[in-house]
């Protein structure tokens, strides 16, 4: 079953720049998909439209049964509750502890305290940060902060995890650890879409790879078929 179904999506910014041209794309439940391409090819715009940070100018984008193009501003939270997002710059609440940062995503639903505690501990265990509950983000390394961000993104069991260059700020070893965590999450059933520049990671993971160029899908490599291409 398709989790994401994009048909003839087009995005023209107010400045007149067209970022995405008539893009068609289907992503199945449980897939792990890399989106690669040179700077300005529309990667960021594409995933921003998936979590409705941007609206498509025309066309249809359906994520988990929700038509993103028709989603009202005040109803965006309904989509966001099905999606976890991880960024290059982590975006943690600086003045909250690791535990609070992760628990926050559950508290807004009004979940009972015991359940929140159970789930936060479980997810922090999964990303390997069970012993840093009371630390503040600035007391953590980059890799650890990214793990907290991943924990926050998956704590409410989203169908889809969107990662925008999650390893962009990390060294090779830490990046590899983060990729292990993401792979683990994917194996537990969460669909993952990851934008990256890091070709080493893409090669190593042997997943489906979508190559964008000038707002269009240039190539769609099946799982494991991506080799060291020039772009």
């Amino acid at each position: 079953m398709d989790l994401i179904n994009i048909r003839k999506a087009k995005k023209v910014y107010k400045t007149g720049v067209t970022a995405i041209y008539d893009l068609d794309l289907k992503i199945k439940k449980g897939e792990f998909v890399f989106i690669i391409g040179s700077t300005g090819c529309g990667k960021s715009t594409l995933i921003k439209m998936l979590y409705r940070e941007e609206k498509p100018t025309s066309g249809q984008i359906i994520v988990g049964g929700i038509d993103v193009a028709k989603l009202k501003n005040s109803k965006v939270y309904k989509l966001r509750r099905q999606i976890g997002v991880v960024f290059q710059d982590f975006r943690l609440l600086e003045k909250s502890t690791v535990y609070e940062n992760v628990a926050f995503a559950l508290e807004i639903f009004g979940a009972p305290k015991d359940e929140i505690h159970k789930r936060v501990i479980k997810v922090l265990e999964l990303v390997g940060l069970k012993n840093r509950l009371k630390s503040y983000p600035n007391q953590l390394s980059g890799g650890e902060q990214q793990r907290v961000a991943i924990a926050r993104a998956i704590v409410n069991g989203p169908k889809l995890l969107i990662c925008d260059e999650p390893t962009g700020n990390l060294d090779e070893e830490t990046s590899s650890e983060i990729m292990d965590v993401l792979d683990e999450i994917n194996k537990l059933g969460t669909t993952i879409i990851m934008v990256t520049h890091d070709r080493k990671i893409v090669k190593k993971m042997k997943k489906r790879v979508i190559l964008l160029d000038a707002g269009r899908v240039l190539k769609d490599y099946e799982e494991g078929t991506y080799k060291n291409e020039s772009i």
Binding site: S74, V76, Y77, R80, V85, A105, F109, N156
Partner: peptide, 16 residues
């Protein structure tokens, strides 16, 4: 602003 952005990101409604 960042804080509000993060709240939105994790699925907080406007009222939240």
């Amino acid at each position: 602003k960042t804080e509000i952005g993060i709240m939105r990101l994790v699925g907080a409604s406007n009222l939240n």
